[in-house]
């Protein structure tokens, strides 16, 4: 069902294109993706087999802008049409707000259309939805092919309730947008009926700031401390669980030198902690990578500074913090 975020003033609705295999569901999304302005849509994501058959779903997010002060977004999904993929097909229906049933107009495909529509009703009922209560439009696709069923036949067989329908040729874009406009309107009309759009203006103060990313002002500030630590790789064997139980607040700055006994088998690793002074190289590294706790800048005086050894360094830090706390 629709997601409404009053803080960001966003409403997000899910529209699913359902129908038998090869009826043109993915083609509909591809056409929409190709034709709508790039700033209003995201990337088209297809989870498909090597033969370009939908395996799980295709996904296209579309932002239609502000309606009643709310940034309104549609998430367009297709399902895998093949009978074999019913398990994944059912999953896509979760939380659906509107449905487009893409039927293949060819006479030989009529049975598949009927089977797929019955399957839709069954899958919806498993989620507790009623096919009669969810906005639904029909798209009779492939109208340009020979040997197709008449619209009357299709209507009689698939759409006895006379819901909106469109004759389409998805490969050429015929009626693709008409179908989408119709279902979008039905979905938003229902959202309005369900009173999801508020009458009153809701104050939003932090939304923009927060959406920009992490608020660095809440991050810990660097503490002046300097220590030279010598240890062995034997510490690597400590379990992460032990390390993670050390609350950060209780950590104390390292202020003395510690040199455990070295054995012949142990490879020594020197780590110099110098938090007060950050070199240019480290500053660049911090910019290039993302957030790292500012109180743990490590420069390596021995050993390779690959990821594995960096990870060891963090383990060592935690262990030493724990020791000093005691």
């Amino acid at each position: 069902m629709a997601s409404i975020n009053y803080a960001f003033k966003e409403i997000s609705c899910k529209i699913v294109f359902y129908g038998p295999g090869l009826s043109g569901k993915t083609t509909n999304l591809q056409y929409v993706h190709q034709k709508i302005p790039p700033q209003t849509r995201g990337d088209l994501i297809s989870l498909a087999t090597d033969q370009d058959r939908t395996l799980y779903f295709d996904f296209l997010p579309v932002d239609i802008g502000r309606i009643y002060g709310f940034s309104t977004k549609f998430q367009l999904y297709t399902v895998p049409g093949q009978v074999y993929y019913n398990a994944t097909r059912k999953l896509v229906l979760r939380g659906v707000d509107g449905l487009v049933f893409v039927a293949d107009s060819q006479k030989c495909k009529m049975d598949e259309n009927i089977e797929s529509f019955q399957n839709l009703a069954e899958n919806l009922s498993e989620y507790g939805y009623n096919v009669d209560k969810i906005p639904l439009v029909f798209q009779y696709n492939k109208r340009d092919l020979p040997d197709i069923s008449s619209v009357e036949e299709l209507e009689k067989t698939l759409n006895p309730k006379r819901l909106p329908y469109f004759e389409a040729v998805a490969t050429k874009g015929m009626s693709v947008f008409d179908t989408l406009k119709c279902i979008s309107k039905l979905v938003l009309d229902q959202a309005k009926r369900k009173q999801l759009f508020p009458e009153r203006e809701i104050k939003v103060s932090e939304a923009e700031k927060v959406s920009a990313g992490l608020d660095l002002s809440q991050m810990p500030q660097p503490e002046p401390m300097k220590a030279t630590v010598s240890s062995s790789t034997a510490v690597e064997n400590s379990t992460p669980q032990t390390v993670t139980t050390i609350p950060k607040k209780e950590r104390e700055p390292l202020s003395e030198e510690m040199t455990p006994k070295e054995t012949q088998q142990e490879k020594r690793l020197e780590i110099e902690l110098d938090v007060g002074e950050i070199t240019e190289e480290e500053k660049v590294k911090m910019d290039q990578t993302s957030f790292r706790e500012s109180s743990t800048i490590i420069s390596w005086s021995a050993g390779k500074s690959d990821k594995k050894t960096k990870s060891k360094g963090f383990f060592l830090l935690h262990i030493f913090n724990k020791l000093f706390k005691r």
Partner: peptide, 25 residues
Amino acid sequence: QNRIDSDSEFSTSLENRLDDIFSDQ
């Protein structure tokens, strides 16, 4: 607490937006 007063205003606003975005151009 949440209500919308005007049906016609909503429909017009919505249709205009949909026409702008979902077109073959």
